[in-house]
Design a protein around this nucleic acid. Structure first.
Lengths: 213, 213
DNA sequence: ACCTGAACACCGTTCAAGT
DNA sequence: ACCTGAACACCGTTCAAGT
């Protein structure tokens, strides 16, 4: 019974049944012990979930171990793309990362790499420090969006969209004129395309806001 | 026993004891009934939480009912500032809004207003449609950050920061050189200042990315 | 120091039965 | 149609007691 063993068991359950089933009691059952035993290695459920995120991030390929020929921007987008793809396999973990500030070593390495790339792009120290937050927020949230589809296999997303459309139509053009105007543009494009656009928006915005007030 | 009554009771508990206590059973107790009775008016817990968000958004002052003298940008920032301040009083709701796509009438009105302001600023229909997502994401996430402080009165945030610093120092300068370089800039500034900067980043980024690929 | 059983104080949701 | 009691199948966390 070790911290590693607990995290591994949790990861297995996560893959098989989702974050909702990653509970102290469930893990204890898998490890053939009582839930109380886990508290020697894990402070509480939040602590456990944070461990899970860092474990997943262990697989990230940092720019230092990649081709160095590409521009800082290409490399930054590639890194964030990898990060999003990795989290997309476990969108519920992305959800969690949105409100639990991660501090694990693998996460810190990611933050470090992004700051470096932003600095390569000419961002000031201030802009890089505040900007790393911004791009990670966009990336994490983009991955978390996928969790809205998962649980009920497509149904959730489809219904969310149709509910949206129905709601807009029901209210009539006069009530939400701008919403009616953009119409299906709201949900147009591919996940890939939207992510890329969002990252561009964030990066360009950061470069345009060097000075911090 | 009405849907309104249930939402009101839930709102009261939210204000007094936080989202974690807003449970079917707790609400039922307050309304002096059994938990099963609520299911006539509310599909499930997620549905209930979504209702709560829209209820809070009822208090938002849309630009149409405000001074029209200011520039589109000033008005957009003011609107988003209000939205964030409103959610900051209930950061746990902000958290929830990050992963449950809201579709209530008050939320739709907010989205409609933001699209209108972005269009005023010269954003294309595409950029406005995709951009409204971007600014709301930044705003909502900024409000959600406050929930990291609330629960244990300051302790959480302080410890999160000190854990971060400790972790960085422990790892040594060589391991995370860029992180060490920006140092306390990472967490510098006021919440207000950071929010304003983030919004500027998002808005400038949107205007710089008119074309959607 | 680590592990365990048992308990405390809770959950969401369903369903048959009543009004 | 709405409401209810009771049940099913779970939770996190603590703590005294054991090894």
């Amino acid at each position: 019974l070790t911290r590693r063993g607990i995290v591994d068991a949790a990861l297995q359950i996560l893959r098989d049944e989702g974050l909702a089933k990653v509970t102290m009691r469930r893990i204890a059952t898998v490890l053939d012990t009582g839930p109380a035993s886990l508290y020697v290695y894990v402070r509480d459920t939040e602590d456990l979930h944070a461990q899970l995120l860092d474990e997943l991030l262990a697989d990230i390929k940092l720019p230092s171990s990649r081709a160095r020929r590409a521009s800082w921007r290409t490399r930054l987008v590639a890194l964030l793309d990898d990060y999003v793809n990795l989290l997309c396999a476990h969108p519920e973990i992305a959800r969690m990362a949105l409100f639990t500030q991660p501090t694990g070593p693998n996460y810190l390495a990611l933050v470090d790499a992004i700051i470096g790339l932003l600095a390569d792009g000419g961002a000031s120290r201030e802009a890089a420090a505040w900007g790393v937050d911004a791009v990670l927020l966009v990336a994490t949230a983009s991955a978390a969006e996928h969790s809205r589809e998962k649980p009920q296999q497509h149904r959730a997303r489809d219904s969310a969209l149709s509910v949206l459309s129905a709601e807009i139509e029901a209210a009539g053009e006069t009530r939400f004129p701008h919403l009616t105007d953009v119409g299906e543009l709201l949900t147009s494009g591919t996940a890939q395309g939207r992510l890329r656009w969002r990252l561009d928006v964030a990066i360009d915005g950061i470069l345009a806001n060097e000075r911090v007030r």
